[in-house]
């Protein structure tokens, strides 16, 4: 009997060559979407700015005065949109990725999870690129970057775990049930309204505030806004809540995927 070696492979199920594949997949995810447009990846910069601008025109009349003193609505709104896009697009792409690559997965032995991870990490990188225009908006509205900026990376890391975990669990459901996608879209819309993306939490009544605080995305968003330009108030509980959410959902999603994948793969 050979002793089992502890290696990258035994820990993650990925070999060194699989990590190279992961890199290629992320590259594709980032570049292919804009391959046929003139400004290419520039859309990643422009998209959140345009969306934010439209929403800013609509909502600044309603909410701009409702923030705490020192906080600015434009960067508040754009930070919300960036994080929400990271979550939404990452989740849907991770959940779709495995069905979309079914043709490959039924012919070549590739660890299927790699496609979901690539989607979550690509969303993370898109989010990081989006921080460049956000920085502009921060300075235009008279704020400056916070010294806690590196914490943004941590927020992104845990959100990527959260996205990958939920995405993996959803991916087996998406293959099994055709109409699951529509239901998830509605749930994501509800979740968007339960996250203070474009409104300050203070405009809600006490009961609603409690519900919104229970939403883990609220903690992600508050810590992000606080660490980027000191545009929110946070407590230690927010940090604990977001990191636990990331870890627990990642473990849970991986478990569900591992359990149901062997039965699902023959349906591809």
């Amino acid at each position: 009997m050979k002793a089992k070696k502890v290696s990258l492979y035994s820990l993650t199920g990925f070999s060194k060559n699989n990590l190279q594949l992961l890199r290629l997949l992320i590259q594709q995810e980032l570049t292919l979407r804009y391959k046929r447009s003139v400004i290419g990846i520039g859309w990643t910069l422009l998209n959140p700015m345009l969306t934010s601008f439209v929403l800013w025109i609509v909502f600044s009349f309603l909410f701009a005065g409702k923030l705490q003193t020192g906080q600015q609505f434009a960067p508040y709104l754009m930070a919300g949109i960036l994080l929400n896009t990271f979550f939404n697009q990452g989740l849907l792409q991770a959940a779709n990725s495995i069905a979309a690559n079914g043709g490959i997965l039924t012919k070549v032995a590739v660890p299927p999870k790699i496609f979901a991870f690539a989607a979550a990490l690509a969303a993370f990188i898109n989010f990081l690129i989006g921080l460049i225009p956000l920085t502009l908006v921060v300075y235009i509205s008279g704020q400056s970057l916070s010294i806690f900026l590196p914490i943004v990376l941590l927020v992104g890391f845990f959100l990527a775990l959260f996205v990958a975990g939920v995405g993996l669990a959803l991916s087996v459901i998406f293959i099994r049930f055709d109409d699951a996608k529509n239901i998830i879209n509605v749930l994501l819309l509800i979740l968007l309204y339960l996250t203070p993306v474009f409104y300050p939490i203070s405009i809600l009544n006490e009961q609603m505030q409690q519900i919104v605080t229970l939403n883990p995305l609220t903690s992600f968003l508050d810590v992000f806004r606080w660490s980027f330009s000191n545009n929110a108030t946070v407590t230690g509980a927010d940090f604990a809540y977001l990191s636990l959410t990331g870890i627990i959902f990642f473990a849970l999603g991986s478990y569900i995927f591992k359990k149901y994948w062997p039965r699902t793969v023959s349906m591809l």
């Binding site: 594709q28 490959i104 012919k107």
Partner: peptide
């Protein structure tokens, strides 16, 4: 079914590399 994983939007070169990576080879 050869070529499962070929992507029409990628170039020939990129496809060779990607397909090989799928087969678990060293890029």
């Amino acid at each position: 079914e050869l070529g499962a994983g070929f992507n029409p939007e990628l170039t020939g070169r990129e496809n060779i590399i990607f397909y090989s990576a799928l087969l678990g080879r060293n890029v």
